[in-house]
Design a binder for these strands. Structure first.
Lengths: 369, 369
DNA sequence: ACCGCCGATGTAAGCGCTTTCATGTCATCA
DNA sequence: TGATGACATGAAAGCGCTTACATCGGCGGT
């Protein structure tokens, strides 16, 4: 209930140093004393005191993750990737979740306290210079996930490329008037996806009517929400703009977009094609086309990187960029195919059996059979 | 980068005791010294050393949550409830996730280390006596979430009642041959839901053919998986059993059940009605009827309870039981209505606008309008 | 029998902070 | 003017652990 190594030492008739040695399985201790100590510890129900140990060792075996909870699902999935690696590695995870971009600052501040953790994973947050300096000054190993700064290790999806792929896909489908529904313009991933969009639109020589880019100012979830996507679309309609394709910078927003389209009496994909980004679990069921991020891999890669830097702080900075994967589903099919899929899969429109199976086993897109 | 209160003390020309006082905003310190200390700290980029502070104070301001990651979504949502309370309270969260029931033990062991956290939230795990003793012996405050033991604080959904409600609902719909698809029989919630099911079946005087209860032995996610639901249903079909209603003890499993039914060339709800449990985010989109657990409230209530016990360890044990809420959607409609809904909501079958909105704002079931 | 060495163990100095208690300094009151 | 606090500050003792460094037998070698 509160026994210390002193208690064990007394009970086993040795010094605390010996107890410590036994408990850390480190130095050579005679078999007899080892046994005696182990027995004493057992019978006392000894649990080491983490803070004391960390203080003495200058190591906490904890990593902290600062996560703006934009999208629950994105978050949950990446976290799983983290955990699977973490469990094996004897590290523990402290989660600092921020509800808004502003909260990120205070949570980061806490994560940077010395002795609390051996490294920090910073998610989806813009790194302006102040922050970069703050991170550097703290001296703590940091890995950016889903954002970028030249001086810091990072692992991200190639959001710009993803934006290009999404846009190209809509164009290939014959869309001419494509609208972009963005999240909060402060959110780096959203901005990158936009840049990809712009680039392809320009390359394709497609006209981009004013107001065809709508962004959300909603600080909550950084605009990555169903409601924000819906409002964006409604505001388009209100101004009399009707695109024939929409690229939403996230799946959650895409869901809102679809809802607004349906409420306006139009149909997806017949009147308006819609594509999102992320490939949330839900997207499969809804038949939403999207760009899949390898979230699980992102998580585990981030951990690997962080551990590597903890071990060797001088190692060169590295950036890992995952290529997103285009998932074509119902919301971007040509009309004919859509009808067939729709009736075949009454409940899981646009999902093939193979895909469901693949997702369950967690191995990326399954082979059609 | 690694400055201590000694550095600050030297720079400000005071003793470390004074520095500590200033930093803890506690005792009275003259305005001048306070300012001097604060400046010194600022200019040194001081961050307190958490372990040292915790050791001295005998308090860590951390709570740990031991979570078997059965269902990502369930987990994610409850975690949000936790976090929202936590952020306000200056506490931090350590997540110990377990992939299997066995891993729970080792994770719990770690969570029980002294000095690591001030309290533990133990999720969805069976508490046999060994474990109960272990928890008691550790002396750490513990709150059970989604499981029960008379001697420990807990907050759960009334799973038995939920099982009753689900079963009664199927019966009200005219089902006569109802099958039960369970998760791992070691999972307490699943067992409780089964008990509710059995009770109503008995009360209603309905015959329960042998083999109409199928459970999963899959340790991964405790059988709370799409694949497990699917296999359960397939095994029923293989033995030539065709129920007219299925109660799955979780939504993920229900999704697998639906898939299997469709693969067998049958239709939901026309041939077989299906109801799940949890009300995951996905369920809304799929049109799955279910019993909603107030996950968010569960999370925040659990935190409140834990904090209360941390403050006063002698307080009486209390159990909070949330009543689940029946959500009727497509999978349990009578056939006529189903057709209408199905065509109206091509993408979001069985979802009304009001519901989507309610869920976005996070306020439970919305009023129909 | 003496020296040196090695393996097993103990001693004690921190790790960076909080906190009690003692000390010192004034303003206050009789 | 000296006793009396009130208040600001410092000295020092931990918190429970790790880890150099010192110590102590006993061993083989000569």
């Amino acid at each position: 209930m509160g026994s210390t190594i002193y208690d064990i030492a007394r009970k086993a008739g040795v010094s605390i140093a010996t107890v410590s040695r036994v408990l850390n399985e480190s130095d050579r201790v005679s078999a007899d004393t080892r046994l005696a100590v182990l027995n004493a510890a057992e019978s006392l129900g000894y649990h080491p005191h983490t803070s004391a140990r960390n203080l003495a060792r200058r190591k906490s075996d904890v990593v902290s993750a600062v996560i703006p909870m934009m999208t629950n699902l994105f978050f949950a999935e990446v976290l799983r990737g983290l955990q699977d690696r973490l469990v094996e590695s004897d590290y523990q995870l402290i989660v600092h979740s921020a509800r808004t971009l502003d909260e990120v600052d205070s949570q980061l501040e806490r994560a940077l306290n010395r002795g609390q953790s051996d490294g920090v994973l910073l998610f989806s947050s813009p790194i302006e210079n102040g922050r970069a300096r703050q991170l550097a000054q703290s001296g703590l190993p940091v890995v950016l996930v889903d954002s970028f700064h030249p001086d810091l290790d990072s692992v991200t999806t190639d959001n710009r490329l993803g934006g290009e792929m999404a846009t190209q896909h809509l164009i290939d489908l014959g869309c001419k008037r494509i609208a972009l529904v963005m999240a909060n313009p402060k959110s780096r991933p959203s901005v990158d996806r936009r840049d990809g969009f712009l680039r392809i639109m320009k390359t394709a020589g497609l006209e981009l009517p004013p107001d065809f880019i709508v962004s959300s100012e909603d600080p909550l979830h950084h605009g990555y929400s169903e409601i924000s996507g819906r409002q964006a679309m409604e505001s388009l309609f209100k101004r009399g703009k009707v695109p024939d394709g929409v690229f939403a910078t996230s799946d959650v927003q895409a869901l809102g977009v679809i809802r607004a389209i349906q409420d306006a009496g139009l149909r997806v994909p017949d009147d308006i094609r819609v594509i999102g980004f992320d490939d949330m679990v839900v997207s499969r069921y809804v038949g939403l086309s999207t760009l899949r991020q390898p979230r699980y891999e992102i998580g585990s890669t981030a951990i690997d990187k962080l551990m590597a830097r903890i071990d060797q702080s001088s190692r060169p900075v590295s950036h890992t960029l995952f290529v997103p994967h285009l998932i074509e589903r119902h919301t971007t099919t040509r009309s004919g195919a859509a009808a067939i899929l729709g009736s075949f899969n009454e409940f899981l429109p646009g999902v093939t059996t193979a895909e469901v199976q693949a997702d369950v086993s967690g191995n990326g897109p399954g082979k059609a059979r």
